[in-house]
Design a protein around this nucleic acid. Structure first.
Lengths: 349, 349
DNA sequence: CGGGCTTTCCAAAGCGCTTGCAGGAGCGCG
DNA sequence: CGCGCTCCTGCAAGCGCTTTGGAAAGCCCG
């Protein structure tokens, strides 16, 4: 069933039917009702491509997920973000297009999406400090919104980020207040913008209290369970092992806990852990039903919610290109759970 | 830059340029080269929508991911599958369209994808036993391929699955051989086809040895970390606690391990665990670099590889609609890791 | 030289929709 | 009655591509 057939069925022109369905005011209410009923009855929906061709819009948003061939790593946070964004798109009548792409090919894909007119805009994932992709997108004129930020990009752009510095500064303060002095940072890859900010927050807190850094207690890598395990295991073999860990992801934190337990210690009593928690649906931090104390003390911020919000920003920017791009900085709360406690041997030093 | 402009630039007709770019034989080699060079130079790519409109193809595959509003659960396996499928699509020149959709709305979305002509086919995720979606897709004439199977659907269809029964039967045998008699099954939701098959394999192995079932040792739910924890914790409080766990997902298995350790026991010595391992990139089962013994003894099968293969089957089926739909049954290997050992108190009983 | 090929190219129709413009119907009013 | 107005509807062009059905040009051969 296409527009032409539907119009013939109704004894109307395609014009009128199209207008009726698209809510144009110059159609009488009775006609509109007839048309809408017939459309529903015949299960008519306008052809995506024809509509797009006629309007010059694709009603689709692209998400390009780089897949570094080195690590063959799929970002676990991604699925939840997409789920959130998908809710927005469904509501607004957009389709979501996903491109998984090898690291170097990103520029090519963006150009392709633009010149083929496949999408009206894209979401940029995993921004790095001074990420060259922002300039690229501005250059080729592809509308975008960034999940996170990219330090030092001068032109205004749409982004949504959590306040990573503050979150990690507070978390570090919390540990310092508990008397911890040897605090380890298990961070994400430190060319990523978020990881740099978290490190900055961490260092700032230490500096403010005059606690010296120990680079042996700072590791950064792809945030997998086994990285957490390996990093924590190594550190606990030091002559002066850390009494607390600040971890960038709950997946990593699971590895840290495993290392702690393998060492015969107990998390929350012998060693404290704070992690960032993206509120991934399949890795809830706490018991079922959400009641009771969380397992990990955590800086928490729902990445799914971020997906919802950021895609809203993007759609708004697409539909009102004139207006200045909007930014959102989310605060993340520190939830105290069972993984932290006072530093052993008293808080001195 | 569109086809018309490109043709004008070259002093050729649109026809010739189009044919040159699409590899039609009736264009001279010299002309083709000129055209291809010019296209590259001007960064020309045919407009997706116009091309689709003209050809009647969309060159896009849809993935519909249901998001049960009850659980607000995003399938963690999904991201890796998508990554694999995305590789195939990128190679074959297809786009991937993702729809996240609330549980009840799935039928509407499939109809919409079909009648809007948005996709050439879809991948069906998370099939249940007697899944009504297969009949629906056949009815509305949307080409599809299933990740998994749906028991008792009579019409032939494309699918790719792992041999869940065999995998879980073998795993159970392995535990039985180690002397375990009280073996718990921590399964996925048992209206899912895969979960039913795993359970069947488990029960078959027990039956073959005359080991009685204990329903208190069989739980099934959404496979989250905390479900694994709760289920295992409960079971270990039984008068006769299990000496081994068979778990349907590595995420769940992490929860089981946590429960074991919270109970003051050691996994692999006091309690054995075998899990299915989807080879998720961010939850590798084993130490970094893949050397050394895996943490968990596991039935392993890469879900990413499954994504690659299944999408290939689908594309093949789309491009040769005549040929019978193909099926692939993957075998999964049992990898012995550190989480299993002989049953305590000797193997008797 | 002309007929029949092959090779190389093109004009134009059409894919299914939107939309600028035009026009018909109905109404009130001078 | 005729004019202008509002309200509704339709014609037809056009979005950027593919593809059918030729046509022009070049070639071989009798």
């Amino acid at each position: 069933m296409n527009l032409k057939e539907l119009a013939q069925n109704l004894g109307l022109s395609q014009t009128t039917v199209s207008r009726a369905l698209n809510g144009y005011p110059e159609v009488s209410e009775t006609t509109r009702r007839r048309v809408v009923d017939a459309a529903r009855q015949h299960n008519y929906r306008p052809n995506t491509r024809a509509k797009g061709l006629a309007t010059g819009r694709s009603m689709a948003i692209g998400h390009v997920i780089p897949l570094s061939t080195k690590h063959e790593m799929v970002n676990p946070v991604f699925a939840d973000f997409i789920a959130g964004a998908g809710e927005t798109y469904a509501r607004a009548g957009y389709d979501m297009i996903l491109s998984v792409v090898e690291d170097g090919d990103e520029a090519r894909i963006y150009r392709s999406l633009k010149s083929r007119g496949t999408v009206d805009g894209v979401v940029l994932h995993g921004p790095r400090a001074n990420d060259p992709r922002l300039a690229l997108l501005d250059e080729i004129g592809l509308v975008y919104a960034v999940h996170g930020r990219s330090t030092s990009y001068e032109r205004p752009y749409c982004w949504l980020d959590i306040d990573n510095e503050t979150a990690f500064r507070r978390a570090t303060d919390f540990l310092l207040d508990l008397g911890h002095r040897r605090i380890a940072l298990i961070n994400g890859l430190e060319f990523m913008d978020f990881a740099l900010r978290r490190r900055a927050g961490f260092e700032e807190a230490l500096r403010a209290r005059g606690v010296p850094f120990d680079t042996r207690l700072m590791r950064s890598d792809e945030m997998t369970e086994d990285f957490g395990y390996d990093a924590a295991s190594d550190m606990m073999e030091l002559a002066e092992p850390p009494t607390a860990f600040l971890v960038s992801s709950i997946i990593c934190a699971l590895g840290v806990r495993r290392a702690i337990e393998d060492a015969g210690l107990k998390m929350g009593r012998d060693v404290s852990v704070i992690t960032h928690d993206d509120a991934l649906s399949y890795l809830p931090n706490g018991s079922r039903g959400g009641r009771g104390r969380p397992i990990f003390t955590a800086t928490r911020s729902s990445v799914r919610q971020a997906g919802r919000r950021l895609s809203e920003l993007l759609l708004e920017h697409i539909e009102h290109p004139r207006t200045a791009p909007r930014q959102v900085l989310l605060d993340s709360e520190l939830m105290v759970g069972g993984s932290t406690g006072p530093a052993p041997h008293g808080g001195r030093t």
